[in-house]
């Protein structure tokens, strides 16, 4: 490899700013992480199956030229989980999408500061 000019992709991101300890950047990452562990414990999929599929998804992300920076890690988890659950017939993509829309409506229909209840999003279901 030629010395001298290095492209930005060679630089390690977050090298010094990342302290010891668990790293969940946002609460949903922790929630997702725990769900995957729990589903594996329940036997919905095996852990070997999970890591293999996650590896396939991360490789696909790279092939598509999408971000794979470490901060995107749990996005890959989410895509992998959705695919696995859909393939196994546990939860279909369309159900996830409509439920997400329902949650969104519930937020919009709930006064600020009030707890969000899913039933508040029922208006979207006609």
């Amino acid at each position: 490899m030629k010395p001298g000019k290095t492209s930005h992709i060679d630089k390690l991101p977050g090298l010094v700013s990342d302290g010891d300890g668990p790293v969940f950047a946002q609460p949903w990452e922790a929630q997702l992480f725990a769900m995957v562990l729990e589903l594996a414990r329940q036997g919905v999929f095996s852990w070997a199956e999970w890591t293999e599929r996650l590896g396939v998804e991360i490789a696909a992300v790279r092939d598509r030229g999408e971000a794979d920076s470490g901060t995107t890690y749990y996005r890959h988890w989410l895509v992998t989980l959705e695919q696995l659950l859909s393939e196994k017939g546990v939860v279909q993509h369309s159900d996830v999408q409509s439920r997400a829309t329902q949650w969104r409506e519930a937020y919009l229909n709930t006064p600020h500061g009030q707890p969000i209840d899913l039933s508040a999003g029922d208006s979207s279901q006609a």
Binding site: Q26, P27, W28, Q31, L32, A34, M35, E38, L39, Q42, V44, R75, L78, L81, E82, L85, V90, V91, D95, V96, Q97, R99, A100, Q102, W103, R104, Y107, L108, N109, T110, P111, H112, G113, Q114, I116, L118
Partner: peptide, 30 residues
């Protein structure tokens, strides 16, 4: 109203509520 969270968080909420309904995930265990 309450500002909804981003799409990723909404999807995670959607998955969680669906899995709880199916009895595959217990929020307390999470």
């Amino acid at each position: 109203h309450t500002e909804p969270p981003g799409d990723l968080e909404l999807k995670v909420k959607a998955l969680e509520s669906l899995l709880v309904e199916k009895g595959l995930v217990d929020p307390a265990a999470l």
